[in-house]
Design a binder for these strands. Structure first.
Lengths: 240, 240
DNA sequence: AAGTGGTCTAGACCACATC
DNA sequence: ATGTGGTCTAGACCACTTG
C-alpha cells in the first residue's frame, strides 16, 4: 500500500510511522487481540530501516496501544479485562475472593448535563445500578451511564447471564473495548440509597470514585460513580 | 577504569551497563545535578558500541535516575524540589498561591515501632510538626519523622530560616536528596490536635496521606503523615 | 565551531515460541 | 525448522546548546 513516508514536518520518522499505524489500529484494520504484520514486513512496506520501524512499534507499546511478545509477535491490546475498582479499598479477611455483582436497576433516561457532555451523545442513555459484594458482604454501590446507540444490546433482554464484570460484557455484546480509564477520587457523605444498599447509616463517610472510561479511539464510553465505606479506602501512589 | 564488561549472566549488556552506572551514581561519583561523561566517552570506556550505551542511559532515564537534555548532556536528577502534597487537595480560590509552612514543634524522641522499622535507624529520631497554609488559611497538618544521625543539622539552631519547603532544606543542610516517595491515602476522623490546628471540629472527616520518602540509594529518609479536610480531597489517577 | 544527544541505516546474531 | 521479537554493532548525519 504505502510506499515511503512523506516528509515528517516537525516530527521524527518513527513518530510519523507510529501515528500511521495508530490510525490503522483505531480504524479497525487490526482488531483488538490480533497480530500486526512482522517488523520486517512493516519496515519493507513503509520503505524504512528495521530499527526505525522498531522504534515506532516501541512507541505504540509505551502508549499501551500494542503489546509486544518475544517470539510471537506484536498484538493490538485487548481492552481492560476486569474493572480493578477494588484496588482502592482494603476489606478485611476477604482477600483473593472473587467479587460478585448484582444489577439493582436498569433504565433508559436523560443523563445529567455533565454526563451528557462527557459521553458526547445527545438524548437518553442507559443507566445501570449495581451492588458489588465480597464474601457475601456488600462493599460497593455503583451507578453507570452508557451512551445509547452503542449499548443498545444491553438495554434489552435478561440481565441474568451478565456475569460479574462489565467490561468483558461490553466487548462481547457491544464490541466496545475499554482501553483507558480516568478515576477521580473524592470524599462524600453516603447518600441514602447507597448507604441502605451497603448496610451503613445514611450520611456515613463515603469514598467516591468517578470513572470516565474510553475506547481505543479515545471516545468516552462510560461514566461511572462508585461509592464505598470511606474507612475501608486505601490507595498507594508512587511519585518520582 | 573499566574495560569491557564481564559476561552478563541473565542480563542484557545494556542492562548490566545501566547497573554499573547506577552504582557509580548512588556511590556519589556524579552528585545530583552534575553531568555524566558524554555517550561517546562512556561507550569507549566500557568497550561497547554507541547504541548500546545509549540504551543503558535511556534505561536510567526511564527509571528517573538521570535526565537527558538534547545538546547539553546527561545529568543526575536533582531530588524532588517541592513536596507536591497539595496535589491531593482542591482548595477553593487559592489557586496558584504559594503555600506557607510554619513549624509547630521540634522534638527528639523514640519513634513508634512502624516508623522505626521503616527508617531502619535504632534509637531516637527527630520529629517535626508543621502547619501548612494557603492564602492565610491552615489546610494541612503534618508530622514528620527523620532519622537522627543524618538529620542532626536540623535538630539544633533556629528554625526561622527554614522556608516553606522541607526537601530543599534537606538537600542544603543534610545533603539528603529525596528521589522517590510513596504516598498511601486513607480517610480517618481528625484527631484532636490536627482538628484544632485546622480550625475544624474534632472527629471531622479527614484525608490522611502517609508518605515514605527515599533517597537515591533507596533508603527511607522520611516518614510523614499529612492530615487535611476530607471534603477538600480530590485526586485523579489514570489507568491503562 | 565544537560538543552534546537524537535519528536513521544496514546488517549480524541471539533468544523465544511454534509447528 | 521457521518465524518472531531482542540485542549489538559501526557508522552517517541531524538538531540543539554553548562559547
Amino acid at each position: 500500500m504505502s510506499a515511503a513516508v512523506d516528509t515528517p514536518p516537525g516530527q521524527s520518522r518513527y513518530g510519523a510511522l507510529a501515528g500511521a499505524l495508530r490510525s490503522r489500529i483505531v480504524g479497525g484494520d487490526w482488531p483488538p487481540g490480533h497480530a500486526l504484520p512482522a517488523e520486517q514486513q512493516l519496515a519493507a512496506e513503509h520503505g524504512v530501516a528495521l530499527g526505525t520501524m522498531r522504534r515506532a512499534l516501541e512507541l505504540l507499546a509505551e502508549q499501551g496501544l500494542v503489546e509486544r511478545v518475544h517470539g510471537r509477535g506484536t498484538f493490538v491490546k485487548q481492552g481492560l479485562a476486569g474493572a480493578p475498582m477494588l484496588r482502592f479499598f482494603r476489606f478485611g479477611g476477604s482477600e483473593g475472593e472473587a467479587p460478585r455483582s448484582r444489577i439493582l436497576a436498569r433504565d433508559v433516561l436523560a443523563p445529567p448535563a455533565d454526563v451528557a457532555q462527557a459521553l458526547a451523545a445527545p438524548g437518553p442513555a442507559l443507566r445501570l445500578k449495581r451492588l458489588r459484594s465480597l464474601g457475601g458482604q456488600p462493599v460497593l454501590y455503583e451507578e453507570s451511564w452508557l451512551p445509547l446507540p452503542l449499548f443498545q444490546p444491553l438495554a434489552d433482554g435478561d440481565t441474568a447471564g451478565w456475569g460479574d464484570l462489565l467490561y468483558p460484557l461490553f466487548a462481547a455484546r457491544c464490541g466496545v473495548h475499554v482501553h483507558r480509564a480516568v478515576d477521580t477520587i473524592g470524599f462524600v457523605p453516603l447518600p441514602a440509597a447507597a448507604a441502605r444498599a451497603l448496610k451503613l447509616a445514611s450520611g456515613h463517610p463515603g469514598a467516591r470514585v468517578q470513572r470516565r472510561a474510553h475506547d481505543l479511539a479515545g471516545r468516552c464510553v462510560e461514566c461511572r460513580t462508585s461509592l464505598g465505606d470511606a474507612h475501608a479506602f486505601q490507595y498507594t501512589v508512587s511519585i518520582t
